[in-house]
Design a protein around this nucleic acid. Sequence first.
RNA 1: GCGGAAGUGGCGGAACUGGCAGACGCACCAGCUUGAGGGGCUGGCGCCCGUAAGGGCGUGGGGGUUCGAAUCCCCCCUUCCGCACCA
Length: 807
Amino acid sequence: HVRNYMIGDIVARLKRMQGFNVLHPFGWDAFGLPAENAAIKNNVHPEKWTLDNIAHMKGQLQRLGISYAWEREIATCLPDYYRWNQWLFTRMFERGLAYRRRSNVNWCESCQTVLANEQVVDGGCWRCGTPVTQRELEQWCLRITAYADELLEALDRLDTWPDKVLTMQRNWIGRSEGARVKFGDPVPPGRTRERIAADIEVFTTRIDTIYGATFVLLAPEHPLVERFAAASPDPAAFRGQAARFRAQDRTARLTGEVPKEGFDTGRTAVNPFTGQPVPVWVANFVLVEYGTGAVMGVPAHDQRDFEFAKKYNLPIVVVVQPEDAAAVPLEAATLDAAFDGEGRLTASGPFTGMRAQDGNRRMTEDARSRGVGEGAVQFRLKDWGISRQRYWGTPIPIVHCESCGMVAVPDADLPVVLPKVVEFTGRGDSPLAHVPEFVNTPCPTCGRPAKRETDTMDTFVDSSWYFYRFCDARNDRAPFDPDTVAYWGPVDFYSGGVEHAILHLIYSRFFSRVFRDLGLVKIDEPFARLLTQGMVLKNGDVMSKSKGNVVDPDDMIARFGADALRLYVMFVAPPEKEVEWIDTGLEGAARFLARVWRMVDYLMPVVVSAAPPAGLTFDADERALRRRTHSTVRRVAQDIDPRMHLNTAVSALMEMVNDLYAFADKRGLRPSGRAEDPAAPPAPPPKVDRLETAAVLAEAVNALVLILSPFTPHLSEELWERLGHKNGVVAAGWPAFDEAVAKDEEVEIPVQVNGKVRGRIIVPAGASDADIEAAALASAQVRPYLEGKRVIKVIVARGRLVSVVVS
RNA sequence: GCGGAAGUGGCGGAACUGGCAGACGCACCAGCUUGAGGGGCUGGCGCCCGUAAGGGCGUGGGGGUUCGAAUCCCCCCUUCCGCACCA
């Protein structure tokens, strides 16, 4: 976290010095399970635990010198903030974007609460890793799927987002185009299998293979399964098999550990293209929540179906042949794996001979015209289940009334305040349900006794819109003023860990669009630029209390100072990479800052009394130092924004300091190496004869202190003041940079002969290509390599290199 | 399996549009600072041959494009990350 806040702070400080109006806010995402669990464990109220932690961390951030706009500080656990969660929930409820339904939900036994799909990682809880089980519960859901298409399509325009995040979101939304097709009741009498009571609708992306569909598979949870069971000769056995599949460990199923299994329902359905009856089976690998919960089995062209057919001896029919003319035609009898590539259709009635892709289109049309199917788009994205059976979260502002049903709490009655006196058991039923004063309330509509909803909201609701609240953090009439958000929004620069790639960043994109459709914001995408910063590791592991490898920023501040810590963390690697923490690196940063301090402190009398450089005539060394000063001013700014290479910005600062030392050395100026030793004789004061030398030193030192300040604000402010400036580094602004001064006077150009560097020439900057070529060919270093050879070609590359080709 | 990112000295990394590979720093080595430690300063530090001058090799491996490749293309290997029976 500290690294992330530093990155943002350096950008904010640069932009402020460049004259931008910078909103650099901070808030506390303070609801959630850790506080509640700590409360149970330590017998302290979650609110106290949370507020104490906030106070501690705020002190730490301030000691690090992170320049936050504390007057806009928010904490999501305070009614000032969460009332607007409730307000927004109410708006969504009115629009059908928030709804309640009974469904299977992910349940974490350890956290004793529901998890959203996004919060299930490798079949376990994202927070504690406990394997997730399924429970049937009444759940409030937010209809994120209403925005699925838009959330997907807009990713194409987020061109500054990391590819990784875009890909993860695309996969998560998981759009696939295909068709829904009905496998109907067999009509003709006299079959051995009985008629079923309804068509079975399947979803497929490969309708072109439908002539090879030789069976239909239902998910064990599919509604028809129970109907078939009831009508079967042995309902108990039937139900038992289905129940066994349903009970199979979901985690094992997800990791592919459970073998594919199924059983025959004894029913048939008619393939709407072949007209042939096909058996209907129940299979453990078919997912009820995806598509229609039923699929057609095409063993020749789908590997899962192939394995299933082999295991249960179901017929295999090849309907796509690879187009590769040399290939041996596939035959069902000899097939050892499904062929899922493109090719030409065979044994597909009127579609035979078409390319599979064309067949796909034509067969979808055909199905539609005959009323047996239609094109369909399917998403993997599910609606977002937000009910949590815990205490420390935003109360859901709904009242359940026996006569009026579910009624939203009117805006005037918001916030629904979280009661303070609650018993925490961690048992997994909502703690609020045991607080009668909270639960019992008159129905807002009819006034009769009614009961409040006792679940609280997923804390990701809190973090899905807080960035707009910062723009107008003290507004008590609305979540924010639209004009104010129009001024600030969208967020220009957003940095955080890649762990937010799906959860937070997709929810926020969803909420932004809800606000847009409510007329509160005009933008779609909340975050214009996204940086996913790498984590800081210690001994190859993520720092965590349980591993005992945490580096406490306060310890580092005490030992080396906040500035050294900031400089080191920025220098050690580019922001998006992971870094391994090493103490010696921090020592190096502290050493560098001591070096800066010594030189600036030593030169102070010269700097304070120096003339401005305008109108002076400088010697070569002085011009070189000015060149370094001006080019570093430019480079540091560009390395921060737009390049976001904070590590090379620090390198540039170090190079400048090295040059400053070298220049000073040439002029007999050298600060004492032991400034901290009071017994050491004081260094003689700097003696500078030339007006011009004093001027370039002053220019360099003043600029250095300023351009270092985003990284090392404390050191820079102190030195800046000592250098006789009054109003601080931000008021001073980013130093002006003069292209003419920064430009090299002459350049060294390598000369290659047949691709090898054989010499170097020095030419005035801006020399013409012809002059450079002539100088290269005349060079004493190069000439021996041209003796007796014929020069075929000479290339002068952008004034940077000469390449001579000889035979 | 699918997808994303990445492989450069002992280490972290630099090389911005194809143009001097290894900037900057860490570690290490040698020297100076009247002794030690600490601090500071100077120099060295990719690999191989060579006392040296100099030469050869070198950005995971192999091929290619180009006057020129860490950078572009093809194949392969490795690592990390994400998704994973999505029909």
